[in-house]
Write a protein that binds this DNA or RNA. Sequence first.
DNA 1: CAGGATCCATATCGATACTG
DNA 2: CAGTATCGATATGGATCCTG
Lengths: 129, 129
Amino acid sequence: MSAVPRALAGPCARWPEDSDFVREVLERAGDKWSTLVVATLEDGPLRYTDIHHSIPGISQRMLTLTLRHLRRDGLITRTSYPEVPPRVEYALTPLGSSLLATVLALAAWAVDHHVEIRRNRARFDAAGE
Amino acid sequence: MSAVPRALAGPCARWPEDSDFVREVLERAGDKWSTLVVATLEDGPLRYTDIHHSIPGISQRMLTLTLRHLRRDGLITRTSYPEVPPRVEYALTPLGSSLLATVLALAAWAVDHHVEIRRNRARFDAAGE
DNA sequence: CAGGATCCATATCGATACTG
DNA sequence: CAGTATCGATATGGATCCTG
């Protein structure tokens, strides 16, 4: 937010000038709940409660907030059916699907390397501390 | 952390049983500073101060913490040369490089779609609120 | 059923000052 | 130069209660 010395303009420009926005997107992609919600919707539309039950540990508050953020970004849609009791379904948009594909690549990386990382952490903790 | 009802075991298992760990890795990958540091090291080893100057906005504290975390995971190495004044270089490990490739794919997604997302957000804010 | 509103604990982060 | 230590602001997240 604060003014960045122009002298730094060069070395900083590893990413396009929109780097702030890229960060924003990365933060959303890296957000614990956002990715889980997107992944949960992979197979088709789901209701609020279904999502809630599919993601252990998420609170109502966080689910609601996450859904709103994803909706705001256009990654999911919300459709409410005027019935009693109310029924609301959330579904991935094409944009959301494309993000999912990318995030799954990252998840695959995590699956491929988590054993190695876990070993690294154990070694580091044993040595350093 | 709390015990999850076994009844949820089915619907939850979208990712392998290590889903907690996958989340951990995703959080690190999605972390604002971690990805920037890894990206900064793409072209070769750098000293602490160089990294600091390459990433506008990062505090000493956050840089130090981020470097330690990345080192703990085995994504970067730290080499200190016994000179005066001290010289310390950080470099990507092969593991770090492989993560970078994946993260860059995500960054590319962000670059490709940020205009669309920005539009979505503007529309959402104009309508909803 | 699908949330909104509120309260509170903790985690995160930045600024600052100090050190080998 | 390359950090560590401390403090305070703010963000984040969970629990709980309430409503159309």
